[in-house]
Amino acid sequence: MIYKILLTIWMNLIIAAVFLYVEPAAGFPGEVSRILFFHVPTAWVATLAFFLSMIASCVYLITRKVNADFLAQSSAELGFLFCFLATVTGSIFAKATWGSFWNWDPRQTSIVMLLMIYGAYFVLRSAVPDHEKRRVFAGVYSILAFCTVPFLVFVVPRITSSLHPEDTLNPASPGMDMKTLIFFLGSLCAYTGLFVWMLRLKVRMLKIMDKEQGVKFKV
């Protein structure tokens, strides 16, 4: 409970601050660079969630503990949600700076493929009737799909050039001033906290649903 309240306060503070306190970055028209505080954290959380889902799948395949599969499934679902949000916010930014919502920039291509991969993951989950088998298959597919991600992230963007702002708005490069950096990291923390909270809820929900099904089966 206290976690939820703290998270709400923290998130609201960050949202208020990035609009009222931080100046927009130079080199971008108007206020568009403020999307940095929302787009990048969602993309980061999506990456984190997919990575966590893959690790949990590995753990499940090795130990066969049902809880690991609950974690893998919840994490993949939340990752899908955040990945979708990253796509939408990125698309809005693309409209504002490049002039169109969608132009198959390598970044857009790779994020859409990620959405497709995890879409397929959910299709697979719903198509295997046996519980045990479904968990194993989903785990295997999740690992297999994760192996294609490096190709999307590193290889495809190198074949075709990208317009994605990297150097101008990357925390590692000197292009970002101190104030922006602090609030950017604050936003990153807020989103990660939100993800952890949602993940715990989701896992709890799956556990309860599983228990209920077990009870029904016994009766």
């Binding site: 493929m113 497709m116 991969i117 879409g119 397929a120 299709v123 697979l124 198509a127 295997v128 009737p129 298959f137 597919y141 297999l144 799909a145 294609t148 190709f151 999307l152 290889v155 495809v156």
Partner: peptide
């Protein structure tokens, strides 16, 4: 699994796209 034909394309396209 169920619905084999459709499932096969749904699962393999994302893997093959890169």
């Amino acid at each position: 699994a169920d619905a084999r034909g459709a499932l096969f394309s749904a699962l393999s396209f994302p893997l093959l796209l890169p």
